[in-house]
Amino acid sequence: MGYFDACLLPRHDVGLDRLLILVGAGWGILLVLESATGAAYPGVIFREVHDAEGPTRLSFRAYWRQANGNPSLRPFLDLLRERHPDLSTAPGAG
């Protein structure tokens, strides 16, 4: 497969612990936040994501649908905005 070829990304509607068990069984890789790396699972090795210049940061997005009436959602998104500002609007962001 070439660098930009499409690949199949399976989706499993299970918790993180089950996904880590699948990774340990050789079913693929999983991108997790650093906070998830504290637990030990047989066959699972945690590695930093690197690019040509060393450790790299992955971007993510969070969306709120206006129709979602969950009262905890707005405080959660406010917390994300506070702790993880949008770097794409920073001066010099490319």
Rank of each mutant, 00 (worst) to 15 (best):
Leu30Glu: 01
Arg57Asp: 07
Asn70Leu: 10
Ser72Met: 12
Leu22Gly: 04
Asp86Arg: 03
Leu33Lys: 04
Ala25Phe: 03
Arg74Gly: 08
Leu19Gly: 03
Arg11Gln: 13
Trp64His: 15
Glu82Lys: 06
Gln66Leu: 14
Gly94His: 14
Ala36Cys: 08
Cys7Met: 15
Phe4Arg: 15
Leu8Pro: 01
Ala62Phe: 09
Phe76Tyr: 14
Thr37Glu: 00
Ala6His: 12
Ala90Leu: 11
Arg74Trp: 11
Gly15Leu: 06
Val49Asp: 03
Glu34Cys: 01
Tyr63Trp: 11
Pro42Trp: 00
Leu22Val: 02
Ala39Tyr: 05
Pro85Gln: 04
Ala62Thr: 10
Gly38Glu: 07
Gly26Cys: 05
His84Gly: 04
Arg57Cys: 05
Leu20Cys: 01
Asp5Met: 09
Asp51Leu: 04
Ile29Tyr: 10
Leu31Pro: 10
Thr37Ser: 04
Gly43Leu: 00
Asp5Tyr: 08
Arg18Ile: 07
Ile21Val: 14
Ser59Asn: 09
His50Trp: 09
Leu20Ser: 00
Ala40Pro: 01
Leu77Ile: 13
Tyr41Glu: 04
Pro42Glu: 03
Ile45His: 14
Gly43Val: 00
Leu9Trp: 12
Asp13Val: 11
Ala40Phe: 09
Ile45Gly: 08
Gly24Asn: 03
Ala93Arg: 01
Pro75Ser: 00
Ala90Gln: 06
Asp78Met: 08
Leu33Pro: 00
Arg83Leu: 06
Val49Thr: 05
Ala90Phe: 11
Gly92Phe: 02
Thr89Lys: 14
Gly94Trp: 10
Asp17Tyr: 06
Ala67Glu: 15
Leu73Gly: 03
Pro42Ala: 03
Pro55Asp: 03
Ala52Arg: 09
Phe60Tyr: 06
Glu53Ser: 13
Leu33Trp: 07
Pro91Lys: 02
Gln66Cys: 11
Gly2Val: 09
His12Val: 09
Leu16Phe: 05
Asn70Glu: 11
Gly15Ile: 04
Gly94Lys: 14
Glu48Trp: 02
Leu73Trp: 08
Thr89Trp: 04
Thr89Leu: 13
Leu80Met: 06
Gly2Ser: 13
Leu16Tyr: 07
Leu33Phe: 05
Phe4Cys: 11
Gly15Arg: 08
Tyr3Cys: 13
Leu33Asn: 07
Pro75Glu: 06
Leu31Asn: 10
His12Cys: 09
Gly28Thr: 03
Leu20Gln: 02
Phe60Asp: 01
Asp51Ser: 04
Leu8Arg: 13
Val23His: 00
Thr89Ser: 11
Ala40Glu: 15
Gly69Glu: 15
Leu19Tyr: 04
Ser88Leu: 11
Asp51Arg: 08
Ser59Phe: 09
Ser88Ala: 12
Glu48Gln: 10
Pro10Ile: 05
Gly43Arg: 02
Leu80Cys: 08
Gly2Ala: 14
Arg61Ala: 13
Leu16Gln: 10
Thr37Asn: 00
Pro10Lys: 05
Gly26Asn: 01
Pro75Ala: 01
Asp13Pro: 09
Val49Met: 07
Arg65Val: 09
Ala67Gln: 14
Gly28Phe: 06
Leu79Asp: 08
Ser72Pro: 02
Ala67Thr: 14
Asp17Glu: 14
Thr56Gln: 07
Pro10Thr: 09
Leu20His: 00
Arg61Gln: 12
Arg47Leu: 05
